[in-house]
Design a binder for these strands. Sequence first.
DNA 1: AGATAAGTCTTACGCCGTAAGGCCGATCGG
DNA 2: CCGATCGGCCTTACGGCGTAAGACTTATCT
Lengths: 231, 231
Amino acid sequence: MGDTTGTTARRRPGLTRERVLRRAVEIADQDGVTALTMRRLGDDLGVEAMSLYHHVRGKDGILDGAVEVVLDELHDAVSRAAAPPGEGGWRDAIRVRILAARTVMLRHRWAPQVMESRNVMTLSAARHVDGVVALMRAGGLSWDLVHHGLHALGSRIYGFTLELGEPEGGDDETQAMLSQIAPQIPNLVAMFMEVAHDDPDSTLGWCDDQTEFEFGLDLVLDGLERLAAKA
Amino acid sequence: MGDTTGTTARRRPGLTRERVLRRAVEIADQDGVTALTMRRLGDDLGVEAMSLYHHVRGKDGILDGAVEVVLDELHDAVSRAAAPPGEGGWRDAIRVRILAARTVMLRHRWAPQVMESRNVMTLSAARHVDGVVALMRAGGLSWDLVHHGLHALGSRIYGFTLELGEPEGGDDETQAMLSQIAPQIPNLVAMFMEVAHDDPDSTLGWCDDQTEFEFGLDLVLDGLERLAAKA
DNA sequence: AGATAAGTCTTACGCCGTAAGGCCGATCGG
DNA sequence: CCGATCGGCCTTACGGCGTAAGACTTATCT
């Protein structure tokens, strides 16, 4: 009380929560989230690891903060991409928002993992979801349908779906083992052959992430739209 | 060569890969995957941590193996649940399989996290997917639609979807903060109020996982069915 | 009986997150 | 102007992690 100047700071910090978190995101972007270590982060900032604790709650605080940075970035991207209200249907409006969110997530490949591994329902996350909810409501969906719809979208609402077990058939060993077990999964093999045939110039990694993401997204949005129309 | 008895074992092991992995799963089930550590696992088996390395590739091998155990369990459950072929549509047949898979995942809450965090495309996983592919093909879906369908299902095919940020509004602090930011997420708040009103006896955790899982699953399966019919 | 080799244990290293406390220097009350 | 105050940073240390290296133990085979 009686804080005349409005600041009680006795010394100007060389470090800042912002600076710490921004560098944390950079490290995770460049070298993966496992490289994001208190000592490494301190080194990168020209500081001892323990000094970080004056600006951040600890490792968990850094992870939370890094996600927060990404979500802010997501918010910006979504805001820029959002069409003025009242143009087109709710379905396409949501589609645009989510695809904008996805462009951010693609810049921070570690973020999905981290977000899934902890309870991320911060203000920035909630505001993004809130925006989608608003569009659904404006489109005439019932609260109940909105609720189920959010669950159906799942993490897709943030622009990502964690993918299990891409083929990854690079090295000879993998190839050999694959041909070993191929008889036990004939349908999968047939599918690979067929789809690879359609798109010859891709020996591996032949699944187009963007296409598959949009396919799944549209499947869900179409389903919701149909349920909304039926009601 | 010339191994007359068929076994070269010089000494009966007190440990076994199977015993190690089974205990690993039990630890993860009981105390979470962070409690699954080499020393802890060794202790539980009455053995030093380093002894485990003669039966398992290391920590990664244990994690992979534990997932493998779960996937085998999943395979059993799915096999038992699978209707004899030719009964009913492919859609419902797949639905039954996936819901059976889900019962297994609910017994091993750590498994989704671990499965997402590494490339799980082992034989048991592949066979499960292969079975779903077979049903889709029998139902007349094109290879292309099958492929997209797998992506759309995502990890739901294994019976789980990782959920982001359940409300979790237990303690007073959370409640206070929530009422603080409520004005910034009016639509979400309205939805919570409405849905909570429909189901009064649930102050929190009011999202029925099973219901939501099935809703999302049906949304995807319905979408695929419609696309298949249109072709 | 001696050799062999698998199974287990011992020791040790370099990481990790962080608790506890000391030092420095900018700011403020007098 | 000066000494108290306290925020910012550093030092040291602890316990836990995964695992490399190698010694010991013991069941089996020749």
